Simulated assay, not measured.
Amino acid sequence: MEAAPASAGHFRALTLFAESTDTVRVARDMVRSCLQDWGLGHVVEDVRLVVSELVGNVVHHAVPDSCLARPGGDRRVDVLVKMWPNWLFIGVVDEDSSPPDLPAGEFLSPELAGDFAEALLPDRGRGLLIAQRLADAVWWSPEELGGKTVWCRFDLDRVADERPV
């Protein structure tokens, strides 16, 4: 296999703080900007929604590990955007080592639920359910010094094939 040229990959990172009133908006705007710069306008809306959900989870639910917490300090949120020829990776890093509530999967087909599809939504984990529906893969990994990263992968070849002509 031939190695891809270094110019084939891109990376951007942004550090935000959960207590800021515009944390989620700034994360969405950064992602939109870099995806447009990289010629990935066709995935912008799906990726922006996933970033909104992941960063929103940190803002509303993350409690920093005691080893990372600073009395009166802001909670750090890192947003990572990595593109490598056929994949786009989104990572949202927080200071809470608790595993996310990744939905286990479908228990009942929405087609079978008919008019009651909304009743099938879980009480928790709806943001991660949205991420699982839009991304090709969702997982998490612990950070070495505490905290975690929730990752999403978008397969750019598949997304490009689904675009209307």
Rank of each mutant, 00 (worst) to 15 (best):
E111Q: 14
P85F: 02
G147P: 05
L145T: 12
R25Q: 12
D136G: 14
N86V: 03
G9F: 08
M30H: 12
N86T: 09
P5C: 07
E45W: 03
E143G: 01
S141G: 09
A119I: 01
D115G: 15
K82A: 09
S98L: 15
A3I: 11
V92D: 05
L49S: 07
L68E: 06
R163T: 13
Q132M: 15
R32G: 15
T15E: 13
P103L: 06
V43T: 14
L145H: 11
E162H: 12
R32T: 09
D136Y: 14
A3K: 14
V51A: 08
H42I: 04
H60G: 06
L129F: 00
T21Y: 09
L68C: 08
E143H: 11
I130S: 08
P100M: 05
W139N: 11
L121Q: 09
E106D: 07
E95M: 14
T21P: 13
D101E: 14
D37R: 11
D155I: 03
D101K: 13
L134A: 04
A117Y: 11
A119S: 10
V165F: 02
V51Q: 04
L54V: 05
A119R: 09
V43P: 02
S7F: 13
A27P: 09
W140P: 03
K82H: 12
V92L: 08
D157F: 01
D78E: 15
E53N: 05
D22V: 04
D29Y: 02
T15Y: 00
